[in-house]
Simulated scan of single mutants.
Amino acid sequence: MKVGIMGGTFDPIHIGHLIAASSAVEAAGLDEAWFMPSHIPPHKDRAPKASAAQRWDMVCRAVEDHPKFKPADVELQMGGVSYSVETVKRLCELYPSHQMHYIIGADMVQFLSKWFQIDEIVKRIGFIGLQRPGTALDLSRLPEHIRQAVVIVPMPLIDISSTLIRERATTGKSARYFVPDRVFEYIEVNRLYEA
């Protein structure tokens, strides 16, 4: 099975995440896209506003109606800081017959050589880089063994972020249509992100 991993804080998950995964599934011929919330993201300077359980609930609600989208709690089960190399090792232990690919933005592809233990990661997993219109990308700057692990696919420009959604909620604006309906209901009922 060919699987794409969408990792992230998902605080909250939004339609941009779903469109990104859909673009990867179609362009790279994935059997499934797994949405994997991080327990504690290593590169963020603040803790998520929503708890791990709330972020998991929102991911489950967001993907429940799509036959190729699945929630994955691997990093939440591992606990601690979510380092990609440890996650990849765990995924390979749990699903040795699966062909795994991280789905990342093309802007992140350029920094793959700086990822912690990237040489160990590319031995085990590939990367699908989502290239938005207007994003310049020069793969020739990457070492050959990393470049060979990357496939670039096009993605429409969706200018939505979790930060924007939280800011809207904090100022009393609606997140409706920025997130799937069931996620919107969850945010409203649980009064997440309110000032």
Score class of each variant (00 low, 15 high):
131 Q>P: 07
154 P>N: 08
76 L>C: 13
62 A>V: 03
26 E>V: 14
171 T>G: 08
34 W>S: 05
54 Q>R: 13
17 H>I: 01
140 S>W: 07
174 S>R: 09
37 P>V: 03
49 K>C: 13
108 M>D: 04
187 I>H: 01
100 M>R: 04
137 L>A: 10
72 A>T: 00
52 A>Q: 01
27 A>G: 01
153 V>R: 05
2 K>A: 10
43 H>I: 12
184 F>R: 14
83 Y>S: 11
9 T>R: 05
172 G>L: 10
128 I>D: 13
189 V>S: 08
5 I>A: 07
28 A>E: 13
118 I>K: 02
114 K>M: 09
75 E>M: 08
167 E>A: 13
29 G>M: 14
140 S>M: 04
32 E>Q: 15
132 R>S: 02
194 E>P: 00
9 T>W: 06
171 T>F: 07
79 G>I: 10
10 F>P: 06
170 T>D: 13
62 A>M: 08
51 S>G: 11
186 Y>A: 09
76 L>F: 11
86 E>Q: 15
75 E>S: 07
27 A>R: 12
161 S>K: 03
51 S>I: 03
155 M>Q: 15
49 K>Y: 14
161 S>G: 08
117 Q>K: 15
41 P>N: 00
169 A>M: 15
5 I>H: 06
139 L>W: 03
143 P>M: 12
181 D>T: 14
31 D>I: 05
159 D>L: 02
116 F>Y: 03
106 A>N: 02
61 R>Q: 14
162 S>Q: 11
178 F>Q: 11
123 K>H: 13
60 C>Y: 05
132 R>Q: 02
147 R>V: 01
185 E>Y: 05
157 L>V: 08
45 D>C: 00
11 D>N: 06
134 G>F: 08
88 V>N: 06
102 Y>P: 00
116 F>T: 09
89 K>V: 09
3 V>A: 01
40 I>N: 04
59 V>G: 07
45 D>R: 08
174 S>D: 15
119 D>C: 02
171 T>I: 08
195 A>Q: 10
51 S>H: 07
39 H>S: 15
65 D>V: 07
35 F>K: 03
154 P>D: 09
11 D>Q: 04
12 P>Y: 11
107 D>T: 05
153 V>H: 01
65 D>I: 01
54 Q>G: 10
119 D>H: 01
167 E>G: 03
